[in-house]
Nucleic acid binder design. Structure first.
Length: 442
RNA sequence: GGCGCAUUCGUCUAGUGGUUAGGACACGGCCCUCUCAAGGCCGGUGCACGGGUUCGAUCCCCGUAUGCGCUGCCA
């Protein structure tokens, strides 16, 4: 559709995918997909001391999880490779030679520096507008180093060379690079290359407005991958940080975002990451989940704290999980919500105990226990009818029966529908657990 | 320090030279209800400050403050 549009995500392999990097990748991907262009993944592994293999894998995993497929790059190939900077030495040498021949470099203690033309450089940025940088003063804008004495390359140089060689049409990156852009433009000009279009997107900050750094909670995509989030929710939330459909919609499917995404709708203000809102949005998606995908994600979430559902019959597991549909926001809430289905050794919530296991309620719990024990058909509707009949007999509302029963059987004051949960648990376990609660209290 | 960018409810955002400044998250109250969640209704909080320009500025200009970024032989 538009083969001239070529964008890239160029992370350095640090061992994890930063949430800000994930959004940069997302914006590049959205732009490419919207225009029918090409999304390229390039690994900026100029620092050879890092474990590139493993560290790069974290980036692939993160991008795949988010559903951001790349058209050129590692595992994918392409006509502009290699896609690792560590394998592009010859290319950099060639361009350095051009610069040397043109007299644009000089040596400084063994390092190679680029001699700035000392002019004003205007950056035309799609997001930030037109910005004039005064680079005439060498005191404030020293000539940049492009190669170290040991032969390794400096980011600014190889980044520009790669963008030229890979025919990148639009550089979409974090605003932290805005001040570096005029230097990059000097390099493009020195190499007689047309600079790409630039779009600097705002940064993601912590909730308190400080810069989100490596150590901050939530800075790594793994927090969300392992924390029970849905990729479509994280994509959606990330897209809303700095971009907006300009109407009141918040929940937008990825293909809808692709359809609407425009760089000139990106705002210039740094955004704080609001975990609560991300969790809320996740709940919006989680609520719609059913069937196989739901069961799979739920079982994975239960497995994390050590609840092994494989020891139970499939039908039991599914029926149990189905009572949890639409009842939680992130999957990590699930073990606490429905763990009682899979373990007998749960403890009773102390606050709920104080409120429900009262001297007044214990005879009532005994009464409902006996009524349940006498039941033939142990299904939700029979259980409900029995409970209500028992309440009527005792001259009380359903509440004083419901709450102590729930606590006795699940250990919690919250959970799935009581009658359904009792049915799934089965008569034997229900009676056993109520008896145990009765014994524990008295 | 120098340079750059930013500034609308606590947070994410919409918006306009004249609006009751809109939505969402979060928060509080009520309703519904077997709990929770969801849903429904109601509620409060915002245009950083000071000068201009203008009949009129949240919106345009200048300054101040604050925040963030860059200023590396990090990326």
């Amino acid at each position: 559709m538009n083969p001239g549009i070529r964008v890239r995500f160029a992370p350095s392999p640090t061992g994890y995918l930063h949430i800000g990097g994930a959004r940069t990748a997302l914006f590049n991907w959205l732009f490419a997909r919207h225009h029918g262009g090409t999304f390229i993944l390039r690994v900026e592994d100029t620092d050879k001391s890092r474990n590139t293999e493993e560290a790069a894998a974290a980036i692939y995993d993160g991008l795949r999880w988010l559903g951001l497929d790349w058209d050129e790059g590692p595992h994918r190939g392409g006509d502009f490779g290699p896609y690792f900077q560590s394998e592009r030495d010859e290319i950099y040498e060639r361009h350095l030679q051009k610069l040397k021949d043109a007299g644009r470099t000089f040596e400084d203690n063994g390092a190679v520096r680029f001699r700035s033309p000392r002019e004003h450089v205007v950056v035309e940025d799609i997001v930030c507008g037109s910005i004039d940088f005064d680079l005439t003063n060498p005191e404030t804008h020293p000539d940049m180093t492009i190669r170290r004495p040991d032969g390794s390359w400096i980011f600014h140089f190889v980044n520009v060379i790669d963008d030229i060689e890979m025919k990148i049409s639009h550089v979409i990156r974090g605003e932290d690079h805005l001040s570096n852009t005029p230097k990059h433009i000097e390099l493009y000009r020195a190499l007689a290359a047309e600079p790409p279009q630039f779009a600097h997107i705002p940064l993601i900050l912590n909730k308190d407005g400080s810069k989100m750094s490596k150590r901050d909670v939530g800075a790594s995509l793994n927090t969300y991958m392992d924390g029970g989030f849905l990729p479509e929710a994280v994509d959606n939330y990330l897209a809303l940080l700095g971009w907006s459909p300009k109407d009141d919609r918040e929940k937008l499917a990825l293909d809808e975002i692709v359809r609407l995404f425009e760089l000139d709708k990106v705002n210039r203000k740094n955004a704080s990451f609001d975990l609560e809102k991300c969790i809320w949005l996740n709940g919006e998606y989680a609520r719609d989940l059913r069937g196989d995908r739901f069961h799979k994600l739920a079982e994975e979430a239960l497995a994390r704290p050590g609840i092994d559902t494989s020891k139970f019959p499939q039908t039991y597991v599914r029926a149990a999980l189905d009572t949890c549909v639409a009842k939680f926001r992130i999957f990590s809430e699930l073990p606490a919500y429905c763990g009682f289905y899979f373990r007998d050794d749960f403890s009773y919530n102390p606050e709920a105990v104080a409120k429900q296991f009262t001297p007044e309620n214990m005879p009532r719990l005994q009464a409902i226990r006996d009524a349940f024990a006498a039941l033939e058909a142990f299904d939700a509707s029979a259980l409900e009818a029995t409970l209500k009949a028992t309440a009527a007999q005792l001259g009380i509302k359903a509440g004083p029966l419901v709450h102590p029963t729930r606590l006795a059987v699940t250990g919690s004051s919250t959970g799935p529908s009581l009658y359904h949960l009792l049915e799934i648990l089965g008569k034997e376990k229900v009676i056993m657990r109520i008896d145990r609660a009765l014994a524990t209290i008295s």
